[in-house]
Design a protein around this nucleic acid. Structure first.
Lengths: 98, 98
DNA sequence: CTTTCATTCAACCTATTGGTTGAATATGGA
DNA sequence: TCCATATTCAACCAATAGGTTGAATGAAAG
């Protein structure tokens, strides 16, 4: 499963961009149960996108920066491909239009 | 649905990176029916990640470069967030270790 | 024409996803 | 000690995703 595929999870990541937060805080903005958000967090954890720090009964979540770099690398790689094929297309069109 | 979420679809995109291809060609490497691949292609089309050129009974698919730039922009934006919070974390750790 | 080839359409099946609710666990505070 | 709070666990449910097969469409080739 791709953890980034779900909009709720992307929103959670975005929220964590401005600092760590507890489960309850993360859940607050959403029109769904705390349990549902707890599950989403678990998915993000399994994907190693966030990490958890327990302090008594409160769990603080924060972003884990590593996998993002991998994602960016993947996109960059793809981009090279695409740009390449765009160039080829442009050349082809130029020839055709003469 | 996030079109990039499926590994088959990512493989198709990667294949299209080296030039346009027909449905049958795209389907060949996969251990699934032609129909299944045809469906994946439709998803990629709806997401405007690929476009189709019909020539007789053959359909040629090729990459559509626009949405990739959007994706890259999104990732870059996220990256800024993450880097930021990493810095904060490092500062916090430094203080703590004294 | 009839047949073959490239592709999609339509109906169907199963596993997974994203959600629910209710109970369990464990910490904190009166 | 007793109750409230923070969180997870477990069982369940509906919708969707990804696959299948078989028939339909439409172009090419004999």
């Amino acid at each position: 499963m791709l953890a980034l595929a779900d909009p709720t999870r992307r929103a959670i990541l975005q929220r964590l961009g401005s600092g760590e937060a507890r489960v309850t805080e993360l859940a607050a903005p959403f029109a769904m149960s705390l349990n549902a958000v707890s599950k989403h967090i678990r998915v993000l954890e399994r994907a190693e996108l966030v990490s958890r720090r327990r302090a008594g009964r409160e769990h603080f979540l924060s972003l884990n920066p590593k996998p993002l770099d991998e994602a960016a690398a993947w996109i960059d790689e793809q981009r090279r491909f695409w740009t390449q094929s765009l160039d080829a297309l442009e050349r082809a069109l130029a020839e055709h239009e003469d």
